[in-house]
């Protein structure tokens, strides 16, 4: 494995856990799948659809998101937003993230 490949592979591992936090943070305001992906990309976090959509369904099945089908631009779209349980979970995860980040900052 070349150094670039190794870097990409480790970067992917590093990103994996943080993407959940990013998705939940973005869903404090209502979004549908495509607009969420565009918003995340705008924040510098590109995410493949094949990762994002199953993740949204999983978070919803865990009770962290609410969703509803609505018509917009003459097409039915599924809108997601954080549920009450999701908000509490996001606060806890964000605190954990800050702790990890502070620890790493001290070490790096």
């Amino acid at each position: 494995m070349s150094e670039t490949d190794l870097f990409e592979s480790l970067k992917l591992e590093l990103r994996r856990g943080s993407l959940i936090l990013a998705v939940m943070a973005r869903l404090k305001t209502e979004q549908y799948g495509y607009s969420l992906r565009v918003a995340l990309a705008g924040d510098g976090l590109e995410m493949e659809e094949s990762t994002l959509y199953p993740l949204l369904r999983r978070l919803e099945s865990q009770g962290l998101l609410d969703s509803e089908w609505r018509e917009e631009d003459r097409r039915k779209k599924r809108f997601y937003r954080l549920s009450a349980a999701g908000r509490i979970m996001l606060e806890r995860l964000a605190a954990e993230w800050r702790n990890i980040s502070a620890s790493l900052d001290r070490m790096l």
Partner: peptide, 13 residues
């Protein structure tokens, strides 16, 4: 449900 959502996503693309 999944197919409808995928369809919307791909049409957006």
């Amino acid at each position: 449900d999944i197919v409808a959502e995928l369809k919307d996503m791909i049409l957006n693309r």
